Deep mutational scan, measured.
Amino acid sequence: ASVAVIAAGTQGNIFATSALRSMRFLQILRMVRMDRRGGTWKLLGSVVYAHSKELITAWYIGFLVLIFASFLVYLAEKDANSDFSSYADSLWWGTITLTTIGYGDKTPHTWLGRVLAAGFALLGISFFALPAGILGSGFALKVQEQHRQKHFEKRRMPAANLIQAAWRLYSTDMSRAYLTATWYYYDSILPSFRELALLFEHVQRARNGGLRPLEVRRAPVPDGAPSRYPPVATCHRPGSTSFCPGESSRMGIKDRIRMGSSQRRTGPSKQHLAPPTMPTSPSSEQVGEATSPTKVQKSWSFNDRTRFRASLRLKPRTSAEDAPSEEVAEEKSYQCELTVDDIMPAVKTVIRSIRILKFLVAKRKFKETLRPYDVKDVIEQYSAGHLDMLGRIKSLQTRVDQIVGRGPGDRKAREKGDKGPSDAEVVDEISMMGRVVKVEKQVQSIEHKLDLLLGFYSRCLRSGTSASLGAVQVPLFDPDITSDYHSPVDHEDISVSAQTLSISRSVSTNMD
């Protein structure tokens, strides 16, 4: 405001104040949320940038038409019409005319000016109207692209899951042992070998009828009888010197917790746990005396209480009078009846079946994303299906024409109403129809010849004498029936064969 007042002088105070007050009108834009329509302006900018070359070309040609039209109309009207006294007036008329506004304040009066105005109007309006069409088509394409992008975003994750499931299904095939990355992934998420051994031990116990592997080994086996189970490696608790092959000598807290839970599941009659010990102070733990958990001091820290809870689970003690015997301790020893080589084939089979199920689920979810969402998608899918159906029908028609023997030239002739090819031409065609016709002709010829021969033979049998045999009239074959199959017997006289037959029969009768 200060700059405006200084620039306008003393009389500019009122002007500056009114100008600043008129800017209050811009507050109405906040009512229509114009300040939060950044996406709309961004869309407009992207459309203009995408079609910038077309817009520049249309505007450039339109500007050239405007300059030439205004100049030529000015030359034609400057002497006869006072409205075109300057080139600026003519340029104003050209702008209003070519933009199809047409105020009518300035019009050419001479015939030359009117002809020039009409010609440049028809030429220039087309170029001035091009930017509107370019922007409209650009907006339509952009909206369609955003629509497809939205659908693509919805299909991206199911497609990625389907590709991942397909690759993992491919890589978990037993015949592709060189693909090891997927197996490394499952090695990292699978439970430890100790848990798998416990699982298979329970399965084997159920197969043995509820007997433990130790009891199965204690059962008497006759001499020479084959053992029911192959000899396997035996594993004891981590306190002993022997372990399962492939295990580490260090046992983690999870393994100890699972070991304690498995020992508690063996039965309360074979294992008696004394009350857990509780320390009397955060600094020292008295293991010899058993106290109640309700006497825990409230001033303990979080670490002390955590250690106390761990001691409740991981440090059970047995009383002296209830101490288990050596046999019970041997039964409680952890027996590992299986090795990694025995378990891994079954584990890989389970993983393979899981990968198949996940692949089928991913495939079903991806197919669900291909379903249409709204009416536009339904129409688009219907149009695509219609085009596909037309293509299939056209391909089927082409194959039928190839089989029947109607080529493209014959199809055009039928469409024009011309006469089709004759039967002889159809026979000569190298097509399925021509071959079928040729075979039918040959079969008819053979059938006719057989009928003639059978009739001749029956007449010979009825006559009974050589004289009557020679008097029999043998009809000749019709050459038209034989089609294109020409037998060497067709052109010979059958009477010669009949005479030869009669001579042979007379000779045979004389010999008798």
Rank of each mutant, 00 (worst) to 15 (best):
S227C: 03
H386D: 01
Q204K: 08
P238T: 05
M432T: 09
Q444R: 04
H202Y: 08
N208T: 09
S508I: 15
D401G: 14
L390Q: 12
K412Q: 03
V472G: 15
Y485D: 10
K449N: 12
L190H: 01
R228H: 11
S284N: 05
H491N: 12
A323S: 12
W183L: 03
P220Q: 05
G252C: 03
G288R: 15
S445A: 11
C244F: 12
Q335H: 05
E215K: 02
T294N: 14
T369I: 14
A323D: 07
S311F: 11
A181G: 04
R313G: 13
R256S: 03
S504F: 09
T277A: 07
I356V: 06
I503V: 02
D512H: 15
P226L: 08
P245R: 10
P408R: 05
L199F: 08
K254E: 01
D388N: 13
P231A: 13
R256G: 09
I253S: 13
R317P: 14
E289A: 01
I494S: 14
V437D: 02
E327A: 13
Y382C: 07
A165S: 13
E330A: 11
Y185N: 12
E289G: 03
I257L: 00
C244G: 10
L314H: 12
Y457C: 14
R505P: 08
G470S: 07
V437G: 02
S242F: 05
S319C: 11
I403V: 14
R435L: 07
V427G: 07
D484A: 03
R265W: 02
E326G: 04
R435G: 02
L501V: 12
Q444H: 15
E330D: 01
E368Q: 06
V221E: 08
Y334D: 07
A206V: 04
E380G: 04
V328I: 07
I393V: 03
G260R: 09
V375M: 03
S466P: 15
E440G: 00
G260C: 12
T349R: 03
I403S: 07
S227Y: 11
K365R: 08
S506L: 09
E429Q: 01
G464V: 09
P191L: 09
K367T: 02
L179P: 14
S463C: 03
S262F: 15
E321A: 11
R505S: 11
D255V: 10
S504A: 15
I430S: 10
I356S: 01
D418A: 10
G417S: 01
E425A: 13
F456Y: 09
R176L: 02
R218L: 15
G385C: 12
Y186F: 06
A413D: 04
R265G: 11
K270T: 10
E337D: 04
F456L: 13
D342A: 06
A467S: 14
R194G: 10
F308S: 15
G260V: 07
D304H: 08
L396V: 09
K358Q: 02
I379S: 06
T339S: 04
F302Y: 13
D493A: 09
K315I: 14
T398I: 12
A498V: 07
I393L: 03
K376N: 13
I446M: 01
L387M: 04
L360R: 07
A329G: 11
P268A: 15
P421L: 15
R505G: 10
Q263P: 15
P191Q: 11
Y485S: 12
A225E: 07
K295Q: 09
Y170N: 03
A413G: 09
S299I: 12
P230T: 14
Y229H: 08
A197G: 13
E285G: 07
A346P: 00
T482S: 03
K449R: 09
P230L: 12
V296M: 14
P324T: 11
P282A: 11
T294S: 14
F243V: 03
G260A: 14
C244Y: 09
V472E: 10
T500K: 01
A471D: 15
C244S: 09
G455V: 04
S458P: 06
T369A: 10
S506T: 13
D451V: 13
H272Q: 01
V436G: 01
E447Q: 01
P293T: 08
T234A: 05
D173N: 04
R217Q: 06
S497C: 14
A467T: 11
S497T: 11
D255Y: 08
Q444K: 08
T465S: 03
V427L: 01
I189L: 11
T291S: 11
V436A: 08
A323G: 02
N303S: 06
T306I: 04
I379V: 08
D478E: 10
T266K: 10
K441Q: 03
E447A: 03
L214M: 02
M433L: 01
R352S: 07
A413V: 10
D187N: 02
K254N: 02
P293S: 07
P488L: 14
T339A: 01
F200L: 14
R212L: 01
R250Q: 05
G252R: 05
R355S: 04
L199M: 15
S487R: 15
I430N: 02
S431R: 04
Y229S: 02
V437A: 03
L454F: 02
D223G: 12
E447V: 11
L314R: 13
A225G: 08
D480N: 06
I494L: 15
V496L: 10
D428A: 11
M344V: 14
I351F: 02
G252D: 06
Y382N: 07
A177D: 08
A206D: 01
V216A: 13
S301G: 15
K332E: 11
A177G: 03
K441T: 04
R371Q: 02
A274T: 05
R258P: 03
L190V: 10
E195G: 09
V347M: 07
P226T: 01
P191A: 12
D401H: 12
R352G: 05
E492D: 13
L169Q: 01
A320P: 11
T398S: 14
P191R: 04
R305P: 15
L211V: 04
D304V: 15
H236Y: 01
D322A: 07
E415A: 11
P226S: 04
V489A: 13
S495A: 10
K449M: 11
D484H: 14
I503T: 11
N510I: 10
G434A: 08
A166T: 11
L453M: 05
L169M: 09
E331Q: 12
F477C: 09
I446V: 05
R462H: 08
G405A: 02
S249G: 04
Q499E: 15
P213R: 07
D423V: 10
R462L: 10
R250L: 10
P282T: 06
D480G: 11
E380K: 06
C235F: 03
G210D: 14
V287L: 08
L214Q: 03
T465N: 10
Q263R: 09
E330K: 05
R307C: 09
H386Q: 03
G239S: 07
H448D: 13
A413S: 09
E429D: 10
L312Q: 07
P324S: 14
E289K: 13
M278R: 07
K365I: 11
A219V: 07
V232I: 02
H236N: 03
E247Q: 15
V203A: 02
V375A: 09
S483Y: 08
D187G: 09
C336F: 10
S261N: 10
R307L: 14
Y170H: 01
E447G: 11
K254Q: 13
N510D: 09
A166V: 05
S502N: 14
P408T: 00
V400A: 11
S269A: 08
E380A: 09
G391S: 14
E321K: 12
P279H: 07
F308Y: 01
G407E: 05
S319P: 13
Q297H: 07
D484E: 13
S445Y: 05
Y485N: 13
D341G: 15
E285D: 02
F193Y: 13
L501P: 12
A290T: 14
F302L: 13
V474M: 10
P345S: 05
G434E: 04
S353T: 01
P238Q: 10
S283C: 06
S353Y: 03
T500A: 08
G246V: 02
S248C: 11
T266P: 10
I351L: 09
A384V: 08
R176G: 11
S325L: 12
D493H: 09
K394R: 03
D410G: 06
M389K: 10
T482N: 07
S283G: 10
H236D: 05
P421A: 03
A310V: 06
I354S: 01
S301C: 02
K365Q: 01
R228C: 10
V216L: 03
P372A: 07
G239V: 14
P475R: 07
